[in-house]
Design a protein around this nucleic acid. Structure first.
Length: 319
DNA sequence: AACCCGGGGGT
DNA sequence: ACCCCAGGGTT
């Protein structure tokens, strides 16, 4: 059961992290704007995708679709083409659906409320909070993989057995930490700390501004001390045991891989043109034959359902 | 709650 | 060969 941080430490926590952010934050393009459209594009692209790979795609996408209205009015095929290399292609379709929803149902006026944002396609709890905070500078709390990890370590530490603390509880904890009026910088700073210092595999605690108030650090320091004492006494800890796992399926040849190759094949077509089903099959499998047709129809049907292609008259094309 | 959805880079 | 990454949607 996590205990809230002592209130007398709250102000110190705020100033420590905000000062660290002011000094060490990366200069990322989406931190230079409050335009909700640009913030949304960045947030959708950043879902499960690293910053370094998003940056060039972000610029290219906004060059092609500089405004919400331009994205809403573009052929979906073009949006999918611009998404090449980012993965999770449904994000591209949902992003355009959101643009069209905002244009058609909100008169082009971007929603500000988290609950309203949350209803947009492709916008979940994280993205709704991020847009409310990073575009409209609201002091809202939300969780992404970085914030979740930082909060777990700082506020819960060794009590977080196997991630037993739920998001609901973590979110309540996080909401109590947001400094009034500084939500934008605070949430950016939590994410930045998780990305640069409090990383998943090897956190750089020696240069962490939150170290004085971090439960995980305190516990680790105590454990290290005990270990050093034990080693000095001639006691060695048991070697970590490797748990045997079944070999995982290779990615090439997986369903996900074929979906990606199918969309790539359609991207390569000149705009407006289509491919016979068997032609697509041959581009996915050199030895494609009639026996593969049911499999291909299933693949295509799912992509069609996802809005990533259109299958009509035995031909396949981008929407 | 479990599963699916891409692709690239790090270790 | 794993793990990780500014998550969301479906079942």
């Amino acid at each position: 059961m996590p205990v809230p941080l002592p209130s007398e430490r709250l102000e110190a926590l705020h100033s420590a992290l905000l000062a660290w952010f002011a000094r060490y934050a990366r200069d990322l393009p989406w931190r230079r704007t409050r335009d909700p459209y640009r913030i949304l594009v960045s947030e959708i692209m950043l879902q499960q995708t690293q910053v370094e790979r998003v940056i060039p795609k972000y610029h290219a996408f906004l060059a092609a679709f500089p405004t919400l209205e331009r994205l809403a009015g573009a052929p979906t095929a073009e949006v999918i083409r611009l998404w090449a290399g980012l993965g999770y292609n449904r994000r591209a379709v949902n992003l355009q659906r959101t643009a069209r929803t905002v244009v058609e149902e909100h008169g082009g006026d971007f929603p500000r409320e988290v609950a309203t944002l949350r209803r947009l396609p492709g916008v979940g709890p994280y993205t709704a909070g991020a847009v409310a905070c990073f575009a409209f500078e609201q002091d809202v709390a939300f969780l992404d993989t970085n914030i979740r990890r930082v909060l777990r370590r700082v506020c819960i530490g060794p009590d977080d057995v196997a991630g037993a603390v739920r998001d609901r509880e973590l979110l309540a904890l996080g909401a109590a930490l947001v400094p009034p009026g500084r939500g934008w910088a605070w949430n950016q700073a939590l994410i930045e700390l998780g990305a640069l210092v409090c990383t998943a595999a090897s956190p750089a605690c020696p240069r962490c501004p939150l170290r004085p108030d971090c439960r995980a650090y305190a516990a680790r320091a105590a454990a290290d001390e005990a270990l050093v004492g034990a080693m000095a006494a001639g006691v060695h800890p048991p070697a970590a045991r490797r748990i045997a796992e079944r070999p995982s399926e290779p990615y090439a040849g997986s369903r996900r891989w074929y979906r990606g190759r199918a969309i790539d094949a359609l991207r390569a077509l000149s705009p407006g043109s289509a491919l016979l089903l068997a032609e697509l099959g041959l581009r996915l499998k050199p030895d494609y034959g009639p026996a593969d047709e049911p499999w291909l129809r299933g693949l295509v049907a799912d992509l069609d359902r996802d809005g990533l292609l259109v299958f009509e008259n035995e031909r396949v094309r981008l929407p």
